[in-house]
Simulated assay, not measured.
Amino acid sequence: MAYRTVNQILKSHPSSDGDGVRIQRVHGFENPHFSPFLMIDELKSLSPDDYIGGFPPHPHRGIETLTYMLSGHFQHKDHLGNTGELRDGGAQWMSAGKGIVHSEMPMMSNEQLHGFQIWINLPASKKMQEPQYHDFQSDVIIEKQLSDNNLIRVIAGDLTIHGETLAGPLQQTGVPLTVADWQADNNEQIQACLNPDFQAMLYVYQGEITVDGLSVQQGQLALLSNGESLAITSHGHCGVLLLAGTPIDEPVVHYGPFVMNSMDEINQAVEDYQNGTFV
């Protein structure tokens, strides 16, 4: 059985979005080994000044977003009438499809804010489908306590851990994928089996891990080799996002909130939005 190893390490970098919300970002729009994912934004703050403006109404086309909050709340509103407020440990999924206009407002819980928004590409055949939205509070996220200090949470897709398959609440996405959160204390281990056709990566949001003896530290993202199995060891208290999915072998053209397959399609999205025919 082939174990996955680390092919490349990318560092997150400070950025801002929306109305000045401070984030740590890793993007892979031009990196085929990132697919089907496009970008990971980490929101982490102890000061409301870092995010108080939130993300006022803005459009999207051609992507899905998955938002996951470790601590804090995240309010969603869109032009379809969908509303939702994530609480600690919850997640929300939105497929923009042919077009959606939404706003997002992060809020602290217990004087903390820590969460992630993951952009996921849509294949050309689904970029103009009808938009969709679902949220999942913490109590429906699938958890497995592997030991007193070793917890896996499966948010999307299926993940086989130590021979047991866990199915997350989010199953119907534009491409087959798995998203999970591993939290562990020092010198804990996890062994996972992944679909060998999936590309996979690990984002370390706390502490340090090793994969096949190679260190991956807080704020770094490791792109993994192909294989059926993955073994990770924690060093200190750690938190890791595992993202895996079917790569999309199509051109990626990105302009602001739009991700399409050609510049003509981007221009059409901009024109539709400006003319009021976007949705």
Rank of each mutant, 00 (worst) to 15 (best):
residue 4 R to L: 00
residue 5 T to Q: 03
residue 5 T to M: 06
residue 8 Q to G: 09
residue 9 I to F: 04
residue 9 I to Y: 04
residue 18 G to D: 08
residue 19 D to W: 13
residue 20 G to T: 11
residue 21 V to L: 08
residue 21 V to P: 08
residue 22 R to N: 13
residue 24 Q to W: 07
residue 28 G to N: 01
residue 30 E to V: 08
residue 31 N to Q: 03
residue 32 P to A: 04
residue 34 F to Q: 00
residue 37 F to M: 06
residue 38 L to Y: 01
residue 38 L to Q: 01
residue 40 I to E: 08
residue 44 K to F: 13
residue 48 P to F: 12
residue 53 G to Q: 11
residue 54 G to M: 10
residue 55 F to Q: 04
residue 56 P to T: 05
residue 57 P to W: 07
residue 58 H to L: 05
residue 58 H to I: 02
residue 62 G to Q: 01
residue 62 G to S: 04
residue 64 E to C: 01
residue 65 T to E: 10
residue 68 Y to Q: 14
residue 68 Y to M: 15
residue 70 L to P: 03
residue 70 L to K: 07
residue 77 K to S: 14
residue 78 D to F: 07
residue 78 D to V: 05
residue 79 H to N: 15
residue 81 G to I: 09
residue 82 N to W: 05
residue 85 E to I: 15
residue 87 R to T: 15
residue 88 D to T: 11
residue 92 Q to K: 02
residue 92 Q to R: 04
residue 94 M to I: 01
residue 95 S to D: 05
residue 101 V to K: 05
residue 101 V to F: 06
residue 102 H to R: 06
residue 102 H to Y: 06
residue 103 S to A: 15
residue 105 M to R: 14
residue 109 S to H: 14
residue 110 N to F: 12
residue 111 E to Q: 15
residue 111 E to D: 15
residue 111 E to R: 15
residue 114 H to F: 04
residue 115 G to W: 06
residue 116 F to S: 10
residue 117 Q to T: 10
residue 118 I to L: 13
residue 122 L to V: 03
residue 123 P to T: 00
residue 123 P to S: 02
residue 124 A to M: 10
residue 124 A to N: 11
residue 126 K to A: 04
residue 128 M to P: 04
residue 129 Q to W: 07
residue 136 F to M: 07
residue 136 F to D: 02
residue 142 I to S: 13
residue 144 K to I: 03
residue 146 L to Y: 00
residue 150 N to M: 08
residue 151 L to A: 09
residue 151 L to C: 11
residue 156 A to L: 12
residue 162 H to R: 08
residue 164 E to T: 05
residue 167 A to W: 08
residue 169 P to V: 08
residue 170 L to Q: 10
residue 171 Q to S: 11
residue 172 Q to H: 15
residue 173 T to D: 01
residue 175 V to P: 01
residue 176 P to E: 05
residue 178 T to I: 01
residue 180 A to N: 01
residue 183 Q to M: 13
residue 186 N to I: 07
residue 186 N to F: 03
residue 187 N to F: 12
residue 191 Q to R: 02
residue 194 L to W: 05
residue 196 P to Q: 03
residue 201 M to T: 13
residue 201 M to P: 11
residue 202 L to N: 08
residue 207 G to C: 06
residue 211 V to L: 00
residue 211 V to S: 04
residue 213 G to C: 06
residue 213 G to W: 03
residue 216 V to I: 00
residue 218 Q to C: 01
residue 219 G to F: 02
residue 224 L to P: 00
residue 225 S to R: 03
residue 227 G to C: 02
residue 228 E to S: 05
residue 234 S to I: 06
residue 245 G to L: 08
residue 251 P to D: 06
residue 252 V to K: 01
residue 253 V to Q: 01
residue 257 P to A: 09
residue 260 M to E: 00
residue 260 M to R: 05
residue 261 N to G: 02
residue 262 S to M: 09
residue 270 V to M: 15
residue 273 Y to C: 14
